[in-house]
Simulated assay, not measured.
Amino acid sequence: MIDFFSVWSLIRASGFLAYFFMTLSLAFGLLNSLSIMKKKKAVLLIYHQTSSWFGLLTIVFHMTLIWKDTYVPYSLTELFIPFFAKNAPFLSAFGTIAFYLFLLVIGTSDFFITKLGRERWKKIHMAVIPAWVMMVVHGLAIGTDSSKSWALSIYAAGIILIIVLVLFRFVDSLLLRQSSQANKNNKSKI
Rank of each mutant, 00 (worst) to 15 (best):
P89H: 13
A156Y: 10
V105R: 09
H125M: 06
I129Q: 06
A141C: 05
V136G: 12
L45Q: 11
M1E: 09
L24F: 12
R169D: 08
M134Q: 02
L24H: 06
S6C: 08
T144R: 14
G55Y: 03
S6W: 09
S51D: 08
D110F: 11
L176G: 02
F5V: 04
I162A: 10
L101F: 15
A18R: 01
H125F: 12
T64G: 11
W121E: 05
L79H: 04
T77I: 13
I66R: 13
W53E: 02
Q178W: 10
K115P: 00
M135G: 12
G139A: 09
A18I: 02
D145C: 08
K184W: 02
T96F: 09
W8C: 00
Y19T: 05
L165I: 01
Y155R: 11
L91H: 12
S153P: 02
S188Y: 09
W53Q: 03
I129E: 02
S153V: 03
A13F: 13
K115E: 12
M1L: 06
F170Q: 08
L34Q: 10
F4D: 06
V43I: 13
R118T: 07
N87L: 07
I2P: 08
L31V: 01
G107Q: 03
S153E: 07
E78M: 08
S14Q: 06
A131T: 05
F102R: 01
H125Q: 11
N87W: 15
P130K: 13
S188E: 09
S149E: 13
L57A: 14
V72C: 07
F170M: 03
L44M: 06
M126Y: 14
F80H: 02
K40Q: 15
T96W: 07
L174V: 02
M1N: 09
N87E: 14
F102M: 06
A98T: 06
M22G: 01
P82L: 11
S180F: 13
L103E: 02
A88V: 00
K184A: 13
L56M: 12
F99Y: 14
L104V: 10
R12D: 09
L161D: 03
D110P: 01
R120P: 00
F168H: 08
T23N: 07
R120G: 00
L116N: 04
F111C: 04
P89R: 07
I124D: 08
M63G: 05
I59N: 10
W132M: 08
L165M: 05
S52I: 06
V171Q: 11
P82I: 03
A131Q: 02
T114I: 01
K68T: 04
L116G: 05
Q178E: 14
R169E: 03
S52E: 11
R177Y: 10
F94D: 07
L56R: 04
F16G: 04
H48E: 11
F168P: 01
D172A: 05
S25Y: 10
V137K: 12
L10M: 14
K86I: 03
S109A: 13
G29L: 04
G29C: 07
K86D: 12
K86S: 07
V7Q: 07
L26F: 14
A88G: 04
